[in-house]
Design a protein around this nucleic acid. Sequence first.
DNA 1: AAAAAAC
Length: 554
Amino acid sequence: MNPYDHRYADPDSYRQRRSDFVGPPPQMGGPPMISRSGPAPYGAPSASLPGRGSGVVSGSGPGVYPPVGRFDVGGGGGRGGDLDNISLPKQDFGNVVPFEKNFYIESPSVRAMTETEVMIFRSRKEITVEGHDIPKPIRMFHEANFPDVIAKLGFVEPTPIQAQGWPMALKGRDLIGIAETGSGKTLAYLMPALVHVIAQPRLVQGEGPIVLVLAPTRELAVQIQEEALKFGSRASIRSTCVYGGTPKGPQIRDLQRGVEIVIATPGRLIDMLEAQHTNLRRVTYLVLDEADRMLDMGFEPQIRKIIAQIRPDRQTLYWSATWPREVETLARQFLRNPYKVIVGSPDLKANQSINQVVEVVTETEKYNRMIKLLKEMMDGSRILIFVETKKGCDHVTRQLRMDGWPALSIHGDKNQAERDWVLAEFKSGRSPIMTATDVAARGLDVKDIKCVINYDFPSSLEDYVHRIGRTGRAGARGTAFTFFTHSNAKFARELVKILLEAGQVVNHTLSAMARSSTGGSGGNFRSRGRGGFANRGSISGSNTIPIGSKRQLW
DNA sequence: AAAAAAC
């Protein structure tokens, strides 16, 4: 029996409710209804995809796709910079009421583990731990001693990050959790979050959330909340998602009715705080998902602002698949005596169940190369194509459609209604090809993505790892094709390391580039990305390596 | 020489 189970003895007083933000609200003029009969024949689009409210496509071209391009520029105005100028009222945490955060009850079976058994378990699961007073890992779900109300969810064996992360998080300690994409990180922090909420005094009118989860994209925030709803509802724990590009009304309503868990993107949350639609005075469990991204230059000022609103004795948890050395110092500014748990190699690592194929090509060869790949692969399963810029993304999408491929694109210059719609089309398989910028690089869990194509190499190796991690999820296998040009030479060495570590065959042109490249780790994380010129001249000729045959690919 | 994140 868990000592905290008696709290919230009257779960009925919690009105469980689904948020209604999924799907384009009509007032936004979202993509209209789709009428289709049966799956689209590939290579010959017969689907009558809708035009958008105001911008119906001219009838020329193959099929009537929604226009490629941006629909919502101008309306939104500048995000980012402006946000950094907002200052929120300073909070006084001098006299806060203490709260409970240590809920871990070590099971007898866990206590019985000898140090040797613990070592063997950790080494077999490739778990590395740091910190003081580290709890033993659990081997079975029931050993976490979750409250009954959330314990009966049918789990048997926790994933490695959960096996070690749950006891750590349940102890109420700060935590840096690093594990590859698709390894169960969301539940690794959501389950302890539910336990945490159950043990806190009930919310009263005017109080903000107890748990705050921050995420770098709107789609990811929505996805996390879907999980929070799925598992929180059993314990009558309410959650909502606060993010931009969608009307504020419903979000304000949720916040004011009271929600124990808020999942948010930083901009809209700051907006809500400024307008005093909510406050963070009751937040005692803070999660940064994709934490390295949340702490990079674009986000850091906003994160600082938000964290300054939260009591310093909170529990703070960072999660990511990638954790560049350079963020650690900054990251620890917001942590107290944290644990660190790493699953797999502490180096930058890719998911082992992904076949990674890198081709060295020239810019002009990319498109035709991709078409060849698509022809080999296209059987209706999902293919995700990453392009570096929004403009490039539109360009590739337009080209694909003109050639008859059922492609839709998602990026940050499209309005949220279209982003939601495109993602839904891709998830359902109605539109099996999605082109995207890095808005889709992190965290998105779409089932059965057969293949990721990096049409452009990303601006960091962390992004590479996240992008290819959209395939090969939850134990399935996947393939990632990457076009690599001379201008990417500075990444060659590190890329080869990642490939070797994942047991991949490295093509010799890339090896040659790695040997002659001056590029080290790609520079400092916080200034990485742009700048730096490739080491040209050391590579001669165009060295396209033929891609493998079909059977080799999956 | 970028993406993302508010209105």
